[in-house]
Design a protein around this nucleic acid. Sequence first.
DNA 1: GTCTATACTGAGATAGAC
DNA 2: GTCTATCTCAGTATAGAC
Lengths: 201, 201
Amino acid sequence: MTTDSATVPRPGKRERLVNAARELVYLKGISGTSLALIADAADVPVGNVYYYFKTKDDIVGAVVHLYEEQLRALIAELERRHRSPRARLKGFVNALAERAVEAAEQYGPQYGCPYGTLSTELAKKPDVPDELAASLMRIQLDWAEEQFRAMGRRDARDLAYELLAAYQGSAVLTATLGLAELMTRQARRLQRWIDDKGEDR
Amino acid sequence: MTTDSATVPRPGKRERLVNAARELVYLKGISGTSLALIADAADVPVGNVYYYFKTKDDIVGAVVHLYEEQLRALIAELERRHRSPRARLKGFVNALAERAVEAAEQYGPQYGCPYGTLSTELAKKPDVPDELAASLMRIQLDWAEEQFRAMGRRDARDLAYELLAAYQGSAVLTATLGLAELMTRQARRLQRWIDDKGEDR
DNA sequence: GTCTATACTGAGATAGAC
DNA sequence: GTCTATCTCAGTATAGAC
């Protein structure tokens, strides 16, 4: 797989657009980011956006797709790196918190979890298919459930909900209160919590 | 306190506007609700809105203020009804969950917690004072901390964060996954969790 | 395939008649 | 104090030149 950028017909304008959209949507929300803003950030003329995407919703869909791949890559990496489901779950919490901290350093603490805020906004939009709004949460939920089940827990689904809810809730509080350190504190607490869930009850 | 609507000079147009704004912002988000929509729902001519509010942001501010009063009223009611801080906290979780269920029945499960979604959206807006975005969370947080402290917990602040995060996170999952029953399940779990926090550790 | 110019719509806000 | 008419501007999307 060579990436000879000189000869390829499309030198990544689409990728640039999706990436600019991802960042802007994170910072300003879907309705707060105009196509002009996206095009400008991607260094692509405004009208040209429509050569790559039929509508604005399509761009947002591409952002969701990008996040899906990000999550799947993280999961694959965790499964390579750790053999026990408990270590994987702890690595998962760790990775999410790490990203949150990096995002807070780069942009400020007020933007929350990219997956959570985007999914919440999508869920409210009437013309968005439910599955698109649910997809990012479902990927994490299903995988976490799998891990808890591999740990021998019969209540694996409930624990997965609890884990994800704790993380998403911390992100909401972090964003609204503007407290970046809250995220890392709660991440440490979740690590301990996962350790406590060793055996079936 | 008589509400003789025939004789009062302003028969509540302002209230109608704020209430329409509250509902529409909950359903469609701030940027998704236009002034025309608000005016129409409140049965007030569009241009007339500016007699009551200087800008759109002022209407949103009034909605936050309305929610603040709602929360303070709930807290006052809980303090009247229950003498022990534990019963108060359980009543709090109960009340929030009950409202969430009612909202889900009326509008569908995809809209999340009114306080959480509004505060999250406000936190991202650059020209909104941080305190406005934080205020609804802070009211709940401070009060919950007080209750945990009255229960003799030294880690009262942490527990308050944990409680609120669990609730807000459940709301995010409920909204994005479209699962109304998730909210009540997590509320029951939180009741048990509060019971477990009886003595200082 | 790429980009410019522009059409069209709906937004927030204002002026001024009643 | 109340409402109509309208201004201005930014947004999405399109037509068509290159």
